[in-house]
Amino acid sequence: MNIVECTDVNKTYQQGQVQIVALKDVSFCIETGAFVALAGPSGSGKTTLLNLIGGLDSADSGDITVDGNPFGQMSQSQLAKLRLYMVGFVFQAYNLIPVRSAAENVEFVMLLQRIPVSERKQRARAILDEVGLGGKYDRRPAQLSGGQQQRVAVARAIVSNPSIVLADEPTANLDSKTGKGLLEIMKKMNLEKQITFIFSTHDKMVMDYARRLILLQDGRLADDRVK
């Protein structure tokens, strides 16, 4: 069963007087439980495609469907609700809330979902334990290393059991050892919880971890292979 379906997706940005084609007639499907890398050089359209799949941006033309929900027909509020319950995000720059502790950052999505406070706390601590941050619940982002912050971001993305996690170059700011550790965690979550992971990268090591590789070049789908 496909969790993501993209059909003839086009996206163009206006930069001053110049039009930049970010995506051109991109079509593909991703099955539930996949561990997929969107690869390609800088400017190839990886981040744009992730943003479109996450409903953070809208396509100029074409259809995107996530778990049967057609984005083209959804309002901003509906998209926000879909992101809340079905999509988890991991960003290159971690993007944790600086005034919150690690546990509070993880709890935040569940707070928006109105999950009772006791359950929130218990689940947040459990998931932090799973990503190897046991005992660091009360540390604020500034008190954590880059790798630890990204693990908090992963914990935040998966804590509410979303259908899909979108990770935009999750290891780009990490050294290779820390990046490898993070990928192991993501792979473990993918296998144990059957959460679909789609991540953008131009890092060979990250590509090696993916079971499927979608290659983008100049906004077009250049290659799509299952390993």
Binding site: Q76, A80, L82, R83, F89, N95, I97, V109, L112
Partner: peptide, 16 residues
Amino acid sequence: MREFGLLKALGMNPWW
């Protein structure tokens, strides 16, 4: 601004 973008990405409604 970046933080508000994150909150929206995480599913926070504009009203919230």
